[in-house]
């Protein structure tokens, strides 16, 4: 009895320093369902608040009301129709903006002259909030689809440009030297070294861009629209229907999350050659 009591501290003293776990510097193991945890908590608060009567339904409809309303909107087809219009706008703006941003980034990333000419204007555009340009765009393009898509394009191309350009500029010069030593043709150099080297930057830009596309969409759809989720919400505001407004908000949120998730999926696939902290 006494022997074991005495013996224990001695052995632990002898082995403890060797066994002390190394402090890990990465963020640690992944928490299961980490992404869903926060939102679920909020949802629970909202449900409890509504059930207990702390939340007036004119201020914020209860979750179940929102669900029923969503069901009705789907049943009469309004939701799908408006969603289709919105998705088309965002998709078109995103596509055009991505192409413009990428092409500009390539021009300015691959030539000093291109950078001198292009970088300044893009930085200026970056400093001006997209909303601030809408009055001008309305004057130039009217209030139709053209103005809406142009606004989205303007919101999209900037992050794509900034991050792709940065990706291009930060390609290790040792790889450029390698290309020179192998006498790569410019096309091969571009395809094998420049584009893959800039891909992480481009994809990061895309993550900002998809969010930006939905953001711009919200703004333009609440100005003189006759269709789209934003229009649906604006109409609901006039009639004080918070449930429909929340359906719209949830929809925007879902669309944003889904599209960001899609880009992240592409990111994981396309950048599987990387070892990063996140893995």
């Amino acid at each position: 009895m006494t022997a074991s009591v005495l013996a224990r501290p001695r052995t632990s003293a002898a082995t403890a320093p060797a066994r002390r776990p190394r402090r890990r510097l990465g963020p640690g193991r992944a928490v299961p369902f980490a992404a869903a945890l926060g939102p679920l908590l909020l949802l629970a608060l909202w449900a409890v608040g509504s059930a207990a009567g702390w939340l007036d339904s004119r201020t914020l409809s209860a979750p179940w009301t929102v669900v029923t309303t969503a069901g009705e909107l789907i049943a009469d087809g309004r939701l799908q129709d408006n969603l289709a219009v919105s998705a088309q706008r965002a998709g078109l703006g995103l596509a055009i903006g991505t192409v413009i941003g990428t092409v500009l980034a390539l021009i300015s990333g691959l030539s000093r002259w291109g950078e001198a000419v292009l970088d300044g204007p893009v930085q200026i555009k970056r400093a001006i909030p997209g909303v601030a340009l809408i009055p001008l765009l309305v004057l130039w393009l009217g209030i139709g689809e053209q103005m809406k898509i142009t606004t989205i394009v303007l919101g999209v191309f900037v992050p794509v440009y900034i991050h792709t350009h940065n990706g291009l500029r930060s390609i290790d010069s040792r790889y450029v030297e390698l290309g020179e030593s192998l006498r790569l043709r410019p096309a091969v150099f571009l395809r094998r070294i420049v584009l893959p080297g800039a891909l992480p930057g481009f994809l990061l830009g895309m993550r900002f861009a998809v969010v930006g596309a939905w953001l711009s969409l919200v703004v333009v759809e609440q100005i003189n629209s006759t269709s789209g989720i934003g229009y649906m919400m604006e109409l609901a505001r006039q009639y004080g229907q918070t449930d429909i407004i929340i359906v719209g908000l949830v929809l925007y949120g879902l669309l944003g999350l889904l599209s960001d998730g899609a880009v992240r999926l592409v990111q994981r696939r396309a950048l599987s050659w990387r070892r990063t902290l996140a893995d």
Binding site: R174, Y175, L178, G179, S181, L182, R183, L184, R185, V188, R192, I193, P196, G197, L199, L271, W273, R274
Partner: peptide, 25 residues
């Protein structure tokens, strides 16, 4: 003529084989 650098200087985004045949038309 070919160069071997002090670091292997492999393109991290290309598989080993693609690194070897880089610039081999």
């Amino acid at each position: 003529s070919s160069v071997v650098f002090q670091d292997a200087r492999l393109l991290p985004w290309q598989h080993v084989l693609d690194n070897v045949v880089l610039g081999l038309p």
